[in-house]
Nucleic acid binder design. Structure first.
Lengths: 347, 347
DNA sequence: TTATATTTGTCCACTTGAGGACAAATCGAT
DNA sequence: ATCGATTTGTCCTCAAGTGGACAAATATAA
């Protein structure tokens, strides 16, 4: 099959190449009849503009690159601990790219490689994408961010709790924690413990603030001794859970900083003979497969990762269509509360 | 930062553009000294050839497209039943693409869409990739295969048990079944049941053949009544398991056609009070997360998906480097036997 | 009818490399 | 020094579009 080019379309529709280009690029100065005629020719020939030529001649490449972390990608299917972040991001981004006539290129990078800057630079320089999407933990890596700035390519950081360059799309951690806490309060819990996340992550502070506000809104005073610092690891979670559950006045519900922490709490609870949810309600953040499959499955907050990626694509495409400049926005998206068997009224 | 082009490199290395091109494309007629000088200039400038220009002028695009099934992708992270095929494929393909200086583009397609042929055609026509990778179930879809043939793009079908056009890379199902069966025989089992897979899939036949050969090799005669047809569904597995486990001379071990079937066998065994692995050993194929997390975790065959994808990339790149023609090969790859707690000596 | 606005076409430059033909330079061996 | 082989350079075309300037054609309004 010979390659169908814009010239063939022009001949078939009996218009100039320029007009076909105008139709393809949705320029407004084309009458509906002509547009229709050209579109018909395009459809009949199955024409799709060559992206390489478009990139070379024009100012857009119709490509978006997503940089994913190599290790995380591997863990995603090797262990059961992955939270499917990357899959969900990709899914959302791909669907949206499709709508815009864009294509998504996924590239793995290794944050620990000494070739990191070079690798990122090469990818950008050879593909010249219209935009880049960064997933955690890449979105906070200074080397990566620096390479992107140098290449002057617009980028969106997904799910990053840190302020910084580029646009940002994430969920509202504070509101999530608040809603989770409210759920427990509504069930009748009055003593709600909180194994906080690592203080290094800003999201942890947001979550703590949400927890406090929910209690305050319910007219409950915050018992500071029920706030135990965790660090997102299983070990940290175990220590924190022991501190909370060994008390004679132990809480009737616990909020865990993340799923890993929650699994640690479950572990300790089982050891101490504390039944979930009969003796203790447990809620957490992230919704990894592990907490869907655990016994009981855990009530948790699900991040709208696919939706976040879709918005990122929209932002980048809009910027490319305009002047290639991406305004420094910070989108907050609503999350989803997954109610499962781990939360119930207090004993 | 100005775009670095081949001209800049040529100037810096004080050679002609042609020579830089020769170095970049690894042509043999360049002396080592000169090659080194050019490479130094490339490194210092951080030059990477513009892929669009390369595509337009030359005969290669340095792009490989992977068509994944939309539904499967979604299920992969929505439910826990996904077998991570797509993730593993992508990981293996990406790493290999990186080595060859290629880039991987993942595209979702919907086999049930009436726009399927058009969509595939558009992607191929606008990207003009050097090759395509198909994952199940796309690799057996006639519409997709037809569109690929029309575009005359080389493609590799991964994990397809069906003969057909294009190259094929898969695992040896027969050897896998054989090894799984041998494992059970070595544990001392003499009565090994087999809930076969759906007869519509050639892989099922291969697996059955492997099972027979293993028994024959061990000097055991095959009891045909221990071969019960399954259909890869949970319901089919339940019926088959009931047939096998209700017998007074029930087998001491069961081979399940796939993980879904295995979970069904577990379900029935638990209901009947048959303990695994004490009363019954259970082994299966696919290694989905579900069977890693089940109680007990199941002995299973893990397909070398990442490795398969890597080989697919190698094949496509080699074809592109040569004449763009892909020989119709059929690679069989070794699999991995994951021994877990579900198999033990007979009671 | 003329003036004005809008749509469409013409023409050309430009993008960044590949690839081929062939000349020029360099090298080594006789 | 001469021949032949190898390496490097010159020069040109080509890929398939975009984008801009501007002219021509057409439609609309005064």
């Amino acid at each position: 099959m010979r390659n169908v080019t814009i010239v063939h379309v022009a001949e078939k529709a009996r218009v100039s190449v320029k007009t076909v280009s105008r139709v393809v690029n949705n320029e407004p100065t084309v009458t509906p009849e002509l547009r229709e005629r050209v579109q018909a020719a395009i459809d009949q020939l199955g024409y799709a503009p060559n992206i390489a030529a478009r990139r070379l001649g024009g100012s857009r490449s119709f490509l978006i690159v997503a940089f994913n972390d190599r290790k995380l990608t591997l863990e995603n299917w090797r262990s059961d601990r992955g939270n499917n972040w990357i899959d969900r991001m990709q899914y959302g981004a791909m669907l949206r790219c499709d709508v815009h006539g864009y294509h998504l290129l996924c590239e793995l990078i290794d944050l620990e490689s000494d070739q990191l800057a070079r690798r990122v630079g090469h990818v950008l320089s050879s593909l010249r994408p219209d935009g880049v999407i960064l997933t955690p933990p890449n979105c906070e890596d200074p080397t990566v961010l620096d390479a992107l700035k140098r290449a002057q390519v617009p980028f969106v950081r997904l799910g990053s709790a840190q302020a910084g360059p580029g646009a940002r799309v994430r969920m509202d951690d504070q509101a999530a924690a608040r809603q989770l806490t409210e759920h427990l309060v509504e069930l009748g819990h009055r003593r709600v413990g909180f194994v906080t996340g690592s203080a290094r992550f800003l999201a942890s502070r947001d979550r703590e603030e949400g927890y406090r506000r929910a209690l305050a809104a319910a007219g409950l005073t915050v018992d500071e001794t029920l706030l135990v610092p965790g660090d997102f690891t299983f070990e940290g979670g175990v220590a924190a859970a022991e501190a909370l559950l060994a008390r004679p006045d132990r809480p009737t519900a616990i909020l865990a900083g993340n799923d890993e922490t929650a699994l640690a709490v479950m572990h300790v609870a089982r050891r101490l003979g504390v039944a979930i949810p009969d003796d203790l309600s447990l809620a957490t953040f992230d919704d990894t497969p592990s907490v869907r499959l655990s016994l009981p499955p855990l009530t948790t907050i699900r991040q709208p990762v696919a939706e976040m990626a879709a918005q990122a694509v929209d932002l980048l495409v809009a910027a490319a269509a305009k002047d290639g400049k991406l305004s420094r926005v910070d989108h907050l998206l609503p999350f989803e509360l997954a109610l499962r068997a781990s939360t119930a009224p207090p004993p």
